[in-house]
Design a protein around this nucleic acid. Structure first.
Lengths: 155, 155
DNA sequence: CGAAATTAGTTACATATGAAACTATATTCT
DNA sequence: AGAATATAGTTTCATATGTAACTAATTTCG
């Protein structure tokens, strides 16, 4: 009986979780650097701005759901944005615990400046793929997301 | 002239950097939890073990290159593994600054326990995709990696 | 050879992050 | 009603992480 001297090989470079992590970090870092350099925003602050622009009056909890941020992270990002004058907290009339969050005019202003830059950065990335490949990638990622957390509906 | 009331839309849910980040986090978290729960290892310690098993006598710097970890992270992971008795530092004879790192028998033992679990976890994930889809995903990720950091050769 | 510049790796410090505790309000249940 | 439970959001505390400074050994080059 062989003593299985080299049981199962595991090459990190072909291991999907590793590759995903490295790729995601490389992409995130590029984008984070852009937001920070140009506007002094963290990625989390940017995410909060994006969903608030999309849904004015959103609550912190809802932001957490949409952005996959935990509530502490949302709380901190919101606090930072308010301090910068980009976000405003409006107490909800029907539930005193929650606030309705809206971008200030200043916030909306820089949001509109960032959007095209963010889209351009993304475009530079996905332009490496044909339209068909982009669609396929989105589809495959959707499947993986479902396999990775079936309970939570990620997107 | 229209006053462009809704300049460019940006839906986070379709924005590639966001999706990549969320997917990668979901996957990493599952795996990290496994390594930590079963063996008390961080993802970084696991990565160090994996490349050291693959290339016994590797140096910290080389580990950093292969795993995309910065040297501080490598240093800390190595220190932890040595403390746990899984890794051994052998001073290099021809360069006193570097150490040749090797797994101890204990380290090799748990490495061999982890590998099948890690592969099983990955399998559970990628089984959502056909072989052909898996290959396609790998190809698309490779293209993106190149577009995201052309300078550094990620894999 | 020997000063200057490089490289391997660690340490220190400042910041980021997550888990758990906490405050305040709302809801449920008897 | 009012006690028990749950929810929104913040604060605290302990840990993780990155940048920069540092030590020690090596290489480069006048």
């Amino acid at each position: 009986m062989p003593q299985s001297p080299h049981p199962a090989p595991l090459r990190l470079a072909t291991f999907l979780p590793f590759r995903l992590s490295v790729l995601s970090n490389a992409v995130s870092q590029r984008i984070a650097e852009l937001y920070d350099r140009e506007f002094g925003l963290s990625i989390w602050q940017w995410r909060v701005m994006a969903v608030t622009a999309d849904t004015p009056g959103i609550s912190a909890t809802e932001i957490g759901q949409r952005t996959q941020m935990d509530k502490v992270a949302v709380s901190r990002a919101v606090a930072g944005l308010i301090e910068m004058g980009y976000l405003e907290r409006r107490p909800s009339t029907d539930d005193a615990r929650r606030s309705n969050l809206v971008l200030t005019p200043a916030g909306l202003g820089i949001y509109e400046l960032i959007v095209p830059l963010a889209l351009a950065e993304e475009a530079q990335l996905v332009t490496a793929l044909s339209d068909k490949e982009q669609a396929e990638l989105a589809r495959l990622m959707g499947k993986l997301a479902k396999a990775a957390s079936p309970e939570r509906d990620l997107w």
